[in-house]
């Protein structure tokens, strides 16, 4: 069976969940091989993690020389591994970095690229992707017709499968050109963890907008009672109430959770673009004319300052 390369998305060796989803997709297409680019001392933990989720082979690239040099060296490393493995497809997480690595790699390999797949299935041996386009108003099925299909996949596109693979390690030495080392991270301020689920991976998201008036405590309270992630509209971000990483929409994150709750958000097209494909949508808004109500499964016309806290205590109470 042909090898399918999966680029491991990790933070200092801690593998992130979307990688396991990619491994599950890789299994549909062929034999999953993970590619770990990171610190040599972090490799063991990452290898163990991806093996548990089905990696038959793990290519390990020590990044001592390229750490901090952004995407160009990673694309070169993948190109060299692809030349050796002749994979049937290359799967990468649909993060900003993942898409850029994929973009450079597509040019290098003369291969077609599909980004932001929400599903990948097999048809006649080759991958068929589903994408959600135009603010989630259309779904599109597409195929790569040239070269090695390179596909970036959104979080939650598949369920991780905890079935161990062989996990055979192959250490690879790659040659990185000087021109790939021209953009460098010169400072980095790690984000404080909120202790809540990752926005793009969460099953439930509670978002607040301008209607919160700047106090997100009611939104956070409801989120915590449901074990949800907290999101926001751009108006809330632009007002400086929450960091930009909370923003949902065209220029923020796209989420597609089981449940999305919008509080004090009007539902502008740019906001919809990031949440429209959520399975169940609930809104709380003072204005019964707010466009967000066109999208909802359930809506409450009312003041979020009273509705949210009352709902949070009822939910907490119901859990005993």
């Amino acid at each position: 069976m042909t090898e399918i390369l999966v680029l491991v998305d990790h933070l200092e060796g801690a593998v992130r969940k979307p990688t396991y989803e990619l491994l599950a997709i890789a299994k549909r297409l062929g034999t999953p091989s993970a590619v770990f680019i990171g610190g040599a001392d972090k490799a063991d933990a990452a290898v163990a993690a991806v093996t548990k989720f089905g990696a038959e082979k793990v290519y390990v690239v020590d990044d001592a020389e390229i750490k901090g040099y952004l995407v160009a060296p990673k694309a070169e490393a993948l190109q060299q591994i692809a030349a050796q493995a002749s994979p049937g497809a290359i799967l990468i997480s649909s993060s900003a970095e993942g898409k850029e690595i994929a973009g450079r790699l597509a040019v290098k390999l003369d291969s077609g690229l599909i980004t932001d797949a929400v599903d990948v299935q097999v048809d006649g041996g080759s991958p068929v992707t589903t994408q959600s386009v135009f603010a989630g108003n259309f779904t599109v099925q597409a195929k790569v017709t040239q070269g090695t299909p390179i596909i970036t996949v959104k979080p939650n596109a598949a369920a991780p499968e905890e079935v161990a693979g062989a996990g055979t390690v192959e250490n690879v030495t790659v040659t990185i050109s000087d021109s790939a080392k021209k953009a460098q991270v010169v400072a980095s301020q790690p984000r404080q963890s909120s202790g809540r689920p990752e926005l793009t991976e969460a099953a439930i998201v509670v978002s607040g907008g301008r209607g919160t008036g700047g106090d997100f405590s009611e939104v956070e309270g409801l989120a915590d009672s449901l074990g949800a992630a907290v999101g926001a509209s751009r108006a809330a971000v632009d007002s400086g109430w929450v960091p930009h990483t909370f923003q949902i929409g065209q220029t923020g994150k796209t989420v597609s959770p089981q449940l999305y709750i919008a509080a004090g958000i009007s539902g502008a097209i740019q906001h919809r673009a990031g949440m429209q494909t959520s399975k169940t949508i609930i809104a709380i808004n003072k204005d019964e004319e707010a466009p967000i109500f066109e999208l909802v499964d359930f809506g409450v016309v009312g003041d979020l300052k009273s509705v949210l806290p009352a709902a949070s205590s009822a939910i907490t109470a119901s859990k005993g």
Partner: peptide, 23 residues
């Protein structure tokens, strides 16, 4: 000459109207 081909496109079915209550 595109290296990807779109096989089909489909408009998202409109959402069925939800229940709206007034607090």
């Amino acid at each position: 000459a595109a290296w990807t081909a779109v096989d089909s496109t489909e408009a998202r079915p409109p959402r069925t109207a939800g229940t709206i209550v007034t607090d």
